[in-house]
Simulated scan of single mutants.
Amino acid sequence: MRLAMQHPWILAVMLALVAGEILWRRHGALGYDGRAAAASLGVALGQTVFRPLTGVLLGAILFALAGVSPLHFPADDGRTWATGFLAVEFAYYWFHRFSHTVRWMWATHAVHHSAREYVLPSAIRLGWTEFFSLGWVFFAALVLLGFPPLVVVTLLGLNLIYQFPLHTEVIGRLGPLEWVFNTPSHHRAHHGSEAEFLDCNFGGVLIVWDRLFGTFRAEPEGRRLRYGLVHELDSRNPVRIALHEWGRMLADMRKAHGLGAKLKVALGRP
């Protein structure tokens, strides 16, 4: 979202896609929950407050790590960007997978899965607490391995931009492309809240890591999936959407007796 705000043409394309999706859904039988879409926008607006603070902190950390790394790949070499693309995709896969399987990280990521209607605005429904959930550690590791912070941050931003049009039911299956790339069909399965589709299809641009590591699930044919959280969150309040899972987790930690039990709640599965 931040990258889109910095480049107005990207934002214009995103808004045009949203308008087209609204017309398509309202012309058909699916309908469109405008209040839920507005709530997603409210969550995104909250990020305009938290993202700059997070960016300053993470920028300082990444440049400090780059300073102590024994390796330094040149940012003006195309091979750095090509290798960096695969490295960022690999790191994103594991970041995303851990965000579903470690409750401390899920507390931030659950925000993105809280939308019960699978539409483009749900793509910008992202948590405010990413610094505290520590998902950035996966990408900081790439800087320690010698990739320039500029390369890592740029490729990650493009990864997230790529995923925006995946959040729609307008686009069906895409044939052979589905073997290599993450597609709307694959990402719909990822957002399914039914038991057989929990914790699958974690890739960003590529779906190959899911195929290699056994987390790939194909979207079912002939029926629509149920979206949202397993414990449904029926709220249009951006603050509640952004913080509800932290509240649930901290309440469970308070009930646990002893440090070990509390850590088991925080580090266990959601």
Rank of each mutant, 00 (worst) to 15 (best):
F147K: 10
V208M: 07
N237Q: 11
R211H: 06
R236M: 08
W104F: 13
H190N: 06
G203N: 06
H109R: 09
E196M: 01
A189S: 11
P149K: 15
N159P: 01
L142F: 06
R240E: 15
R211C: 01
V152A: 10
G175P: 09
L225H: 10
L150E: 15
G135Y: 09
G203C: 03
N159C: 04
E169G: 13
W209V: 13
F213E: 13
G192R: 08
V143P: 00
G175R: 11
V119Q: 14
W104C: 08
A110V: 11
D199P: 02
W104K: 12
W209D: 02
E219F: 05
V151A: 10
G203T: 10
F197W: 14
G157W: 07
V239Q: 02
F202L: 08
R188M: 03
F216E: 06
L177P: 04
V111Q: 09
V205M: 12
Y162L: 07
F131K: 05
F138Y: 15
G204Y: 04
L156S: 06
S185D: 10
L174W: 07
R125K: 14
R226Y: 00
T154K: 05
S193Q: 13
L166K: 08
R188L: 02
Y118W: 08
P121S: 12
D210R: 12
D234M: 01
T183N: 11
I171A: 04
F216Q: 09
R224G: 10
V208Q: 02
E178D: 13
H167N: 03
S122K: 09
W106Q: 12
S235F: 02
H191Y: 00
G146L: 08
S122D: 04
N201W: 02
W136G: 05
F164E: 01
T183K: 11
I241F: 00
R226A: 15
F138D: 11
T154N: 08
V180G: 01
G203D: 06
L225P: 03
L156Y: 12
G172W: 03
W104L: 15
R125V: 13
A189P: 10
F202V: 06
A110W: 06
H112M: 07
V153Y: 04
P148F: 13
E221I: 07
V119F: 00
P184C: 11
Y227H: 03
L145I: 10
G228L: 00
D199I: 08
A242M: 02
C200Q: 08
E178Y: 02
V205E: 09
E178N: 06
G222T: 06
R116H: 13
F213T: 11
G172E: 12
F181M: 14
L134T: 12
E219M: 11
F164N: 01
R188A: 11
F147W: 15
H167T: 13
S235R: 09
G214E: 12
T129Y: 09
C200F: 00
L206A: 05
V239G: 01
L156M: 14
R217W: 05
T108Y: 04
P149E: 14
G146P: 05
